[in-house]
Design a protein around this nucleic acid. Structure first.
Lengths: 143, 143
DNA sequence: GCTTGACCTCAAGTCGACTTGAAGTGGCAC
DNA sequence: GTGCCACTTCAAGTCGACTTGAGGTCAAGC
């Protein structure tokens, strides 16, 4: 398959051209050349974008992700790092589970004030003792 | 119990004084007066801070949370909103579970390149089709 | 050959939740 | 009465991941 121009990559991957340029600047992506001014990318850039998306979904920063690619472009997997991140995710999942249950409870709880409900108070204590800042929600960039 | 000065509230709640001032500016908190320049807060501000922390942990923005307090300071629960947030959390939890399993797998997978591992490729596709941006991790404010 | 329009660069802006810094003030100990 | 110091205000800075805007360029179609 021939190289793809940036618009084509954007179309196929769903990643905006501005983001592709940004990623290239960050070293996450490499263009293979130009047609005129226009960047060209090797077809495997699509796989690379999927990897980046995967890393983001797992909670890695772009800088983290950049380090996971060897200079030759192959994956350089740091197993302990992955395990650590998995454990972090696990903790987050448990916390979010508590929050979800708490919300569902609050939505149906008949106590006159939530502050009088034992279940709610328990959740409140859990939140108060939670790290520093709660879990971040996904940005929904609202195109 | 007497009113607490801002330093005392910070000490008891673990929330920095700068944040307390910031929250007051946002309307999330109300001070009851001053001793000299120094803000005083009613003791129940601690419960309020726990509620704010709970809301943050559940993924609400500060503005969302501000709307959950009636002008008189009591909780004003919007049940459909809570249910919607619970469902959103549920989706996030499921996605994070997939990511966690993927990470654990990647950490032990013996395939020469992860790209050749069927499990990894399946996860990759899942990530590629995920919304727009993956789940946000919690900020660890790093003193 | 000239227009057109989509790309280009680079700097600056955005968003949310705070933090930081400079300059000011007031209660309390001496 | 006076010095200290922790508080005060307000504006600006930070962080991460992008987006947006102004001004420039080039391949292609007419």
């Amino acid at each position: 398959m021939r190289d793809l121009d940036i618009t084509e990559v954007a179309r196929r991957s769903g990643v905006p051209a501005s983001t592709l340029r940004f990623y290239e600047g960050k070293g996450l992506l490499a263009s293979t050349g130009r047609r005129g001014l226009r960047r060209l990318f090797a077809p495997d850039v699509l796989e690379r974008l999927a990897l980046i998306s995967l890393g983001r979904a797992a909670g890695f920063s772009l800088d983290d992700i950049a380090h996971m690619f060897a200079p030759d472009g192959r994956l350089r997997i740091d197993r302990p790092l992955l395990v650590a991140k998995a454990e972090e995710l696990d903790r987050t999942i448990r916390e979010l589970g508590i929050m979800r249950d708490g919300l569902r409870h609050a939505a149906v709880c008949p106590a006159p004030s939530h502050l009088e409900c034992p279940t709610f108070r328990r959740i409140l204590r859990a939140a108060a003792s939670a790290p520093t800042t709660g879990a971040r929600r996904k940005r929904t960039p609202r195109r």
